[in-house]
Amino acid sequence: MKLKEAQAKIKTICNIPFADIFEELDFPMIIKNKGKTGQLLEMALGKKLDNANIDFEDGELKSNKCDATGRPLETVFITQIASIIDELIVEKPFEETHLYEKINNMLYVPVCKVGDPHNWMFLDAIHIDLSKPEFSSLLNIWRDDYYSICRQLKEHIETSKDGFIHTSNGRHIQVRSKDSKPYHPIYSKIYGRKVSNKNHAFYFQKLFVYDVRIAYGG
């Protein structure tokens, strides 16, 4: 399924309570896996759940918890960094990175999760395609964020008391810890040692949601 097809399908189910989209037998899973908003949407679109690196044939699905007005109640997960830490340290060109692969063509879908899960709703999707001129401002912000974060991570490794990376922020994008016990330390071949005692990931901060909705939400 391509993003254009997915966006058209989302329009037919957005602002409709989950009770009118999912079967009652789906709700135990929905309630148990509250953080799996992307999987819920893939289910609603009739897409088979899998572990593919890219959600759709030509891009990614990104979603997060919001209220009924689309105000974000959490950040937006992008991708983990353990396997690419050395690429970040040497500032691999942004357009050649795994991060760029995950965000250069994507559907952002807010999911209203207020009250009873039967009343939760998908809100309308915003399709972001960095190859198009209208998204050049986002491309510039995210490129600047990426290089700033790379420099912050390197500085943390070389100057912090523990020698580990720490939360690093750009305007829209940040790197922060994402892990659960047993933790998964990050090892850098460049430094020949662990540079974190737990895994970290890229996220879009809440400001990303506000800026995108204002500029492209219609």
Rank of each mutant, 00 (worst) to 15 (best):
W120K: 03
F94Q: 00
I128M: 15
F208L: 01
V90S: 00
Y108C: 00
G70A: 09
C150Q: 02
C66Y: 05
W120Y: 08
P110D: 07
F208S: 00
N33T: 10
N105D: 12
L45S: 14
D20P: 02
L49R: 15
Y146I: 07
K161F: 15
N169I: 02
M106E: 06
D50G: 05
N53S: 06
P17Q: 08
Y146R: 02
Y100R: 05
E134Y: 07
E23V: 07
C66G: 07
I89Q: 01
K32P: 06
Y108W: 04
E42H: 12
A44S: 15
S177T: 04
G170R: 05
D211E: 09
E96P: 08
E5R: 08
K102T: 05
N199E: 04
A68Y: 08
I16N: 11
V212L: 14
S83N: 11
K48N: 12
Y210I: 15
E134K: 14
E134T: 10
L138N: 09
Y147V: 03
L41V: 10
Y191E: 01
V90K: 01
K2N: 09
R193D: 11
F122P: 08
K161G: 06
T159C: 06
L107S: 09
I126E: 08
Y100V: 01
Q39N: 13
M29C: 05
A44I: 14
K206Q: 13
D50A: 04
Y183S: 03
N15W: 12
E158G: 05
K181A: 12
G170A: 00
L73I: 15
P72D: 15
L73F: 14
L99K: 02
V212W: 00
P17M: 07
K62P: 08
T69Q: 12
